[in-house]
C-alpha cells in the first residue's frame, strides 16, 4: 500500500525551501536524473532530494505497517480457513514491504528507530485511508480491490523512480500488490454472487471506501506544492490528479462488472474527454484526516505505540543476549 507525499504543511501550501547546493554538482545531478539514471546511496544528491525521499519512503513504510491494522481486525474472524491463510499471508507481505522500505530509507542516513519514533510522535504521516475502520468482511475485499488498486496506480511508476534502492524495492512490492488487488476483487466477486446479506456487505464496503480511496492520491495538483520539483527529480512520475483519473477510469468498469453502484450521482463517462467525470472530493475531510483527525486515527496510533512499548523488554533482551554472546565469542 502506498501513501502519496503528505507534507504535514501541505494543507497550508507552504513549499519546502530548497537548500543551497553547489551549482555544478546540482547541474550534474539534474542531468543524470533527466537521463533516467538511478541515483545510488553514495552518489551526491541535493539535501532537499534526500529529505523529500526520506519523508516519502518512510511515509510509504509507515503506511504498510499501519495498513496491517484494519485488515488484522478481521484476521481472527476470517470466515474460512483458506480466507484466513490468504489474509494472514497478505498482512505478512505488508510487514515485509514495510521492512524493505525502512531498509531502503536507511540508505539515506536515517535509522529505522528514528522513523518509527517519528510515526509514534505524530510528526510522520501515513496514508489517510488507514484511518477508516473496517466494519464488515467485505471491507477486506474492498481494501484489496480499491486500496491496493490505488496503490498500484501510484507504485507502478515508482519502479522507475530516480532513487535506485526505492525503485528496486518497488519492483518486488508491485508484484505482490498486484496479487493483493486480484484477490480483493475475487473476494468482492464472491460476495456479490453470494447471499443478499453478502451483496449488501459488498455495496456497503464500496460506499465507505470509494471516496477515501480517491483521496489516497493526495491533494489536487494546484494544492500540491512539491509536485513540480518532485517530478523534475523523478521522485514522482505523474501528478496526483492524473493518477486519480486513471484510477477512476480503471475502477468504474470493475464496479459495473461486480454489479455494484459507485456512490457518486455525478459519475458519468465523458466522451469528449475520454474519461469519467466525477463529483468534487471533500477536501475538508481529506485535510482533517491528514491532520490525524480521521475516524480511527487515534486508535491506529494507540495500537502501534502499544505494540512498540509492550515489545520494548523483548528488544532489550535480544540486544543484551547478543552483546553477552558477541563478547563471549570474541573472548573465545
Amino acid at each position: 500500500m502506498y501513501t502519496t507525499e503528505l507534507d504535514k504543511k501541505a494543507a497550508d501550501s507552504r513549499v519546502v525551501e530548497v537548500g543551497i547546493d553547489d551549482p555544478q554538482q546540482l547541474a550534474r545531478f539534474e542531468a543524470r536524473v533527466a537521463a533516467d539514471d538511478f541515483i545510488e546511496p553514495n552518489d551526491w544528491m541535493p539535501e532537499t532530494y534526500r529529505k523529500t525521499l526520506v519523508r516519502q519512503m518512510s511515509q510509504h513504510a509507515h503506511s504498510e505497517i499501519v495498513g496491517m491494522l484494519p485488515e488484522g481486525n478481521w484476521l481472527t474472524r476470517a470466515p474460512s480457513l483458506s480466507r484466513k491463510a490468504i489474509l494472514l499471508a497478505k498482512i505478512q507481505d505488508e510487514a515485509g514491504h514495510g521492512l524493505y522500505l525502512y531498509c531502503a530509507a536507511e540508505t539515506l542516513g536515517v535509522s529505522r528507530e528514528q522513523m518509527i519514533d517519528a510515526l509514534h510522535d505524530g510528526s510522520a504521516k501515513y496514508s489517510t485511508i488507514f484511518n477508516y475502520p473496517t466494519l464488515n468482511w467485505a471491507d477486506i475485499g474492498a481494501i484489496g480491490w480499491l486500496v491496493d488498486g490505488a496503490a498500484i496506480m501510484n507504485q507502478v511508476p515508482l519502479q522507475r523512480t530516480s532513487y535506485g534502492p526505492y525503485a528496486r524495492a518497488m519492483v518486488r512490492i508491485c508484484k505482490e500488490e498486484s496479487f493483493h488487488q486480484r484477490q480483493g476483487f475475487e473476494l468482492m466477486m464472491h460476495m456479490v454472487n453470494g447471499t443478499p446479506d453478502q451483496r449488501e456487505m459488498a455495496q456497503d464496503a464500496l460506499n465507505r471506501f470509494w471516496w477515501p480511496s480517491l483521496m489516497m492520491f493526495g491533494p489536487p495538483d494546484d494544492k500540491s506544492p512539491n509536485t513540480e520539483r518532485s517530478m523534475r527529480w523523478r521522485i514522482k512520475r505523474d501528478t496526483n490528479d492524473d493518477l486519480r483519473q486513471k484510477f477512476v477510469d480503471a475502477t468504474v468498469p470493475q464496479a459495473e462488472l461486480l454489479g455494484l453502484t459507485v456512490p457518486d450521482p455525478n459519475l458519468r463517462w465523458n466522451e469528449e474527454r475520454g474519461h469519467y467525470d466525477f463529483s468534487p472530493i471533500d477536501w475538508e475531510e481529506f485535510y482533517a484526516v491528514v491532520r490525524g483527525e480521521g475516524p480511527v486515527a487515534q486508535e491506529r496510533m494507540q495500537a502501534r505505540r502499544k505494540a512498540w512499548d509492550d515489545g520494548a523488554w523483548v528488544r532489550e533482551a535480544a540486544a543484551s543476549y547478543e552483546t553477552k554472546h558477541a563478547s563471549a565469542r570474541i573472548a573465545a
Binding site: T76, A307, V314
Partner: peptide, 29 residues
C-alpha cells in the same frame, strides 16, 4: 498466533509469527 498480528515486538518477529501461523493453518486444512 493470528492474535499477534501487528502486535509483535519487531517487524521481523511479526513476520516470523505469521509464518508459524500460516504453517499451522495449512496443517489444519
Amino acid at each position: 498466533l493470528c492474535e499477534w498480528s501487528s502486535r509483535a515486538p519487531t517487524l521481523e518477529v511479526d513476520l516470523s509469527l505469521s509464518n508459524l501461523g500460516l504453517d499451522l493453518v495449512g496443517q489444519a486444512q
